[in-house]
Design a protein around this nucleic acid. Sequence first.
DNA 1: AAGTGGTCTAGACCACCAT
DNA 2: TGGTGGTCTAGACCACTTC
Lengths: 249, 249
Amino acid sequence: MTDSASAPRRATPAYRLLADRLRVQIDRGEFGQAGRLPTEAELQREHGVSRHTVREALNQLETDGLIRRVQGSGTFANPSQGRSGRYQRRIGSLDEIVVWPDTTMEVLDSFEVEVNPALAARLELPYIEVGHARIRRWYEGEPFVVTDHWVAPSLAKTLAEARVPTRADGTVIGEAEQFLSSKIAGARQDITAMAAPRREAELIGCEPGAPILLIERVYYDTAGGLVEMTASHFNPRRYSYRMDLRRRT
Amino acid sequence: MTDSASAPRRATPAYRLLADRLRVQIDRGEFGQAGRLPTEAELQREHGVSRHTVREALNQLETDGLIRRVQGSGTFANPSQGRSGRYQRRIGSLDEIVVWPDTTMEVLDSFEVEVNPALAARLELPYIEVGHARIRRWYEGEPFVVTDHWVAPSLAKTLAEARVPTRADGTVIGEAEQFLSSKIAGARQDITAMAAPRREAELIGCEPGAPILLIERVYYDTAGGLVEMTASHFNPRRYSYRMDLRRRT
DNA sequence: AAGTGGTCTAGACCACCAT
DNA sequence: TGGTGGTCTAGACCACTTC
């Protein structure tokens, strides 16, 4: 049971490699109609890892809503839901938020420093200036969301020089992370509804005053500091926020 | 390492008992200003369990956004956010959805069977009838949400006879579970915005046509069957949907 | 009765942080 | 350098499902 007898350490942990492999197989539908995965014992043998490692991998997939585990019976891939015209995001963890697959991005206003005491305070900055940028996203030829980004002025300058954002399917926070001393640890978001202001209505293709979805986020790093605030205005006819809630046991 | 030397089996697993204990301590602010929890080694000793059990308990708290773990440094309680007048729900798992703390419930229409082919189809029922009920919730003397519940007609009859819902802070699905052969495994929800219909506007205290938050849910059981569908109309001035997104690693 | 996932122990090495 | 959380192995018994 000494560790010298175990597999060599890798850059990415074994349970994550296994989870990623299974994720691909599930996407490809390799587990047939019933979606039945190999048993934990089989996965142990096939991949040469301990049961604990297998279970950690399955925990990840379960957290993301990809599988369902039934005691005494087996592990099954959840059926993937079909689209209904709108762009539906299914978010289980922050890792799924760092890319927007199949969308394109348009920079309306790149990062500039402006005076905004209220937002500076919300970012817990010791002064009244913030960096601001405004970005719009398209899906299938239609704009569906416009997002305001607020960061500390120093970070805004760095991002402006690096011409961030650069990737059409990336996110500002995802690209900004390389310039941070601490990594992004998480985010807190509030979802609510509001009447579309005139400018936002034009940008996302709805009437002024029409109901839109507002999602506000605050990203914080591992040191506990606030890194970025965003406010996204979604056209609800083109976007819906989908998520899975699961029982713990 | 034989199990005969281990602690006796309990009705609820040890890691859950530990998690619940820690949850209470966090709520009470027993870990001081910094919110630093005991180390995993200390928790092992204090509660007489293995490190694996300690880590499973901490995993639960992390999933619910209550703690943050920093490698090499320690485990810390996340600061609880203050209120801003509105009722803010923070949902990490289904277990947190089976009660609505601090709210009261009003039955507008108790369960009755009605003809509704579209909803019967969405519940995957083989006929055109569904059971329907309508419930309103209050917070601090103000109504903030009205929810329509749809279930299979047979379940509706059972619930009507049992006079469900009965608890002011309970949920229909939570109380219905005792009558089901399979347990609730999870739910899928879509969040979007819409203009308030006249009737719903009256019920939640806003103007007709005002933007409101619509949350649609489908609950499914461990057998994979659909159990209940709900549509909730929230007054966004009195309610906001808050959640935490966390990095996996 | 056999097989599956759920829980738990004991012990190990590692990466990272604080000192 | 010592302590913290992150990863991993080996092995065990249990609850539940299926046959």
